[in-house]
Amino acid sequence: MYEIIVQNLLSPVVLFFVLGVFAALVKSDLKFPAGLTEALSIYLLVAIGIKGGMQLSQYEISAVIKPILGALFLGVLIPILILIALRFTKLDLHNSIGLAATYGSVSIVTYGAAISFLEKKGIAYEGFMNVLVVLMESPAILVSLLLLRLAEKSDFSQEGILMNKKEKAQILGFAHAGLLDKEVLRDSLFGKSILLLLGSLLIGWVVGQNAESLIKPLFIDLYGSILILFLLNMGLIAGERLPEVTKHGWKILLFGLCVPIIAGSIGVLVGSWVGLSLGGVMLMGVLAGSASYIAAPAALRSSVPDANPSIYLGMSLGITFPFNLIAGIPLYFALAQFIQ
Rank of each mutant, 00 (worst) to 15 (best):
I50A: 09
S213Y: 08
V76M: 12
L15C: 06
L202Y: 04
A140F: 11
L93C: 04
I115Q: 11
G264H: 03
I82D: 03
F321C: 01
I97L: 08
L86C: 04
I61T: 14
K120G: 15
G127S: 08
A175P: 05
G264W: 01
G280M: 07
V26W: 11
I161T: 12
T102K: 02
F22I: 15
K165A: 14
Y332C: 08
K90G: 15
H94W: 00
P67E: 05
L195Q: 04
M234S: 09
L30H: 00
A23G: 04
C258Q: 01
A336M: 07
L44H: 09
A288P: 04
P79C: 10
V286N: 02
K27T: 07
M284Q: 10
T89A: 09
G285K: 01
L195P: 00
L9F: 14
F323G: 01
G235D: 02
I171E: 12
L222W: 09
A47W: 05
A175S: 14
I203P: 11
H94P: 01
L99K: 04
Y59C: 13
N8C: 07
F156H: 05
K121P: 00
P243T: 10
F230G: 07
V270E: 09
I78N: 12
L146R: 00
M54V: 14
L148C: 03
L162T: 13
N130M: 11
G239K: 06
I311K: 08
G224P: 00
K166N: 13
I68K: 00
G235Y: 01
L135T: 03
Y59T: 12
L146G: 11
P305A: 07
R87E: 13
F16L: 15
L300P: 04
P330L: 07
F16S: 13
I220H: 09
A85M: 12
F17K: 01
Y312P: 09
G70Q: 02
S105R: 04
Y2I: 15
K27W: 01
P217D: 07
L179K: 03
A177G: 13
V109W: 03
Q158Y: 10
K66D: 04
S290M: 02
M284I: 08
L283R: 05
H176W: 08
L331T: 11
I228H: 09
V131K: 00
S316G: 06
S200N: 08
A177N: 13
L254M: 13
I326G: 01
Q209S: 15
L99C: 09
V106T: 14
R241A: 10
L99E: 03
L25G: 03
S265E: 06
K165D: 13
D29K: 15
A34W: 00
S41P: 03
F117M: 06
Y111F: 15
V46F: 13
L148K: 13
I261P: 02
Y293W: 14
L227A: 10
E240P: 01
F32M: 15
M129L: 14
E60A: 15
L9Y: 02
K66G: 00
